[in-house]
Design a protein around this nucleic acid. Structure first.
Lengths: 151, 151
DNA sequence: CTGCACTACGTACTACAGTACGGAGTCAAC
DNA sequence: GTTGACTCCGTACTGTAGTACGTAGTGCAG
């Protein structure tokens, strides 16, 4: 099994070499061992998984900072577990919120597709309208107060 | 009902005034009527909904460009419906992919929380490890070929 | 032992999404 | 009719996440 050099790791993870170096500088992936004789980075397979995870998490709206938090969530027997638990629960809530919104957009798309069955649409219907219909006006905290504390 | 000036619209939508102007320049929200006597923008309530939608869609990983696409999806009886349908279907697939990944992260968080029941963790377990476990190695297209077409 | 592809490092540049700023005009209250 | 909060517009600046670039060193195939 050939050793994972930076370009192979990048290729396997589906990113560019510079991205790997960038993540390393950011502390998102661990500094790989650089054998003294060569000075070249050699990656464990796990790094590839990690980079893939990072990309997928980005896809669904997490920033690199948040992804770092996610990745650092680790139930370490030596650490105070309740902290990890708390942070995990917070992230879970975040994820659930995202899922809800995604679900709403999904229904709106479904509805849109249904309304447009092939040729000659029957209903005028946009995503926005579907969403408003689906969520019942959405007017939470509309009509926010006027003129108290205006900047 | 007082008219929605830019700052009120911004407040109701939970964004800054500059963000509204920015979205307007980008074409994400329609140019509001600016009565000749004043020159000030006056917004319909719909704009507030729209801005909220934009923010929520951003939260789950859509770029402004993609959100524009989403918002322009509209089953218009006068237009060729199949194009809209196609684009909607593509977006739907995208949404489904996001939901899957979100679901995986969710289970990983669940598992993490379960493994860490209050005090003194029983298992060492990170998000990454949970995900790898949950997705069965994830090694799709790992072992990508070596040395053919290197860059 | 010469090439060529690869690696390292640092710095610069880019795209995206705002955010801030300055100067000028407007509106409503006092 | 002045003051303070608001609006206009254009331009400049910021943070995030890369991406590119130049220089120099390494590794190995021929």
């Amino acid at each position: 099994m050939t050793e994972l050099t930076i370009s192979k790791a990048a290729k396997n993870a589906g990113v560019g070499v510079e991205t790997i170096r960038f993540y390393e500088r950011k502390g998102l992936i661990e500094q790989p061992p650089k054998p003294l004789d060569t000075g070249f980075r050699v990656y464990p397979e796990e790094t590839v998984q990690r980079v893939r995870f990072i990309r997928q998490a980005q896809e669904i709206g997490f920033s690199l900072r948040e992804i770092e938090e996610l990745l650092s969530l680790r139930a370490d027997p030596s650490a105070d577990c309740s902290d990890v638990r708390e942070r995990a629960a917070a992230k879970l809530e975040e994820v659930d919120r995202k899922m809800e919104q995604l679900g709403r957009i999904r229904s709106a798309l479904d509805e849109l597709i249904a309304a447009c069955p092939g040729r000659g649409a029957l209903r005028v219907c946009s995503i926005m309208e579907s969403l408003v219909a689906a969520t019942g006006e959405t007017s939470t905290y509309a009509n926010a107060g006027r003129r108290e504390n205006p900047r």
